[in-house]
Every structure is written in structure tokens, then in C-alpha cells.
Amino acid sequence: MQHFEIEVGGRTRRVAVARTGDKFAVTLDDRTVHADVARIDAHTLSLVVDTECPTGATDPVRAAFEVTIAPDAATGQLIVGVGPTPVAVAVNGRRARRRDEASGGNGPQRLSAPMPGKIVRVLVKSGDPVRARQPLVVVEAMKMENELRAGRDGLVAELHAREGESVDAGALLVVVQ
């Protein structure tokens, strides 16, 4: 039996995995499902999951899912693709935050360049008050101009972006406090 703490959708779920042959019993919080798992490649799993009929009147439905699992370079979380839906997941307390809450809460927001590019416009000055989702900096990369926005209300505490400058991925551009 292996135990995991899994953060998804802003909640922490306890998951236990027990293996019998090629069958897995997965307990999510207090509910157990039985899953048959086939590994397709390093990033793809096929799951056939027994779902008990609530009345017990019929045999369990054997629901089939294809999932992909890959690390998200930007956040260090896992992105689990369930069909076409990407879900951000953190396993065992790797600091998981929903993107819209990234650096939210009370701490300062450190806005970094998500990709290498060129700063084409800086839309705020040091000390400016900003609102959540207000565009702060425009970075040109991959033939497109991309607006980087504030994640929270606050003041521009630090401004490192300069118009015309080339930046690497991860370069700190603005701190909102």
C-alpha cells in the first residue's frame, strides 16, 4: 500500500494505492475504486475503472479512460490530461497553486518571463497601483505580442522590465505587492 497526498482543484485529497497482480485498488478519501492499468508509454496510461452501481442491482460499469501525465515546466506540477481536459495536480505537497491563485493570497507576486523574448512595452511604473488581470508588460515571442498580467491587486514594488530588452525564460520582470 502506498499513500499519496494529491492537490487538485484547490483541495488536498488522500489517495492510497494497493496492488494485486495487475489490478489496483485506489482509495480516494474514503471511497475505493478498482482499476486495471495498462501503461501505454512513459506518459500515457489506459485505465479501466470499476464503478459500483449505487443500488448494487447490476454488475459494475467498467469505465475506460485514457490519461496523459507530464510535468509542467512552468509550475513543477503534473498536468494530467483526462481526455481533452488538462488538470493541474501536485503530488505529495509539491507547492501546487492554481494558476489564477499563483502568488495570490498575501505574498507578493513575482512576475517572470514565461518564455525567452523581447520586452516591447512596459505598461506600468514603479509604485503604480494595479488591479488583478491588469496587463503589466508585453513580451514578443513566437511572432506574437503577449501580455503578462497582474495576478492580484497591489502596487508595483519592483520593476525590472525595460522596453527593447531581450529576456530569458524565468527572468524576473515585475513584483506586485
Binding site: V15, V33, A35, R39, L47, V67, I69, G83, V89, V91
Partner: peptide
């Protein structure tokens, strides 16, 4: 349901 499936898949992936 999709979030639960993602949690289950992440646990299985890590276990495997």
C-alpha cells in the same frame, strides 16, 4: 469526476 480521475491517475503514475 474529472478531478478525481486526475488524482487517481497521478497516484497510479507515481506508484508505477
Amino acid at each position: 469526476g474529472v478531478e478525481e480521475m486526475a488524482a487517481i491517475a497521478a497516484a497510479l503514475h507515481t506508484a508505477l
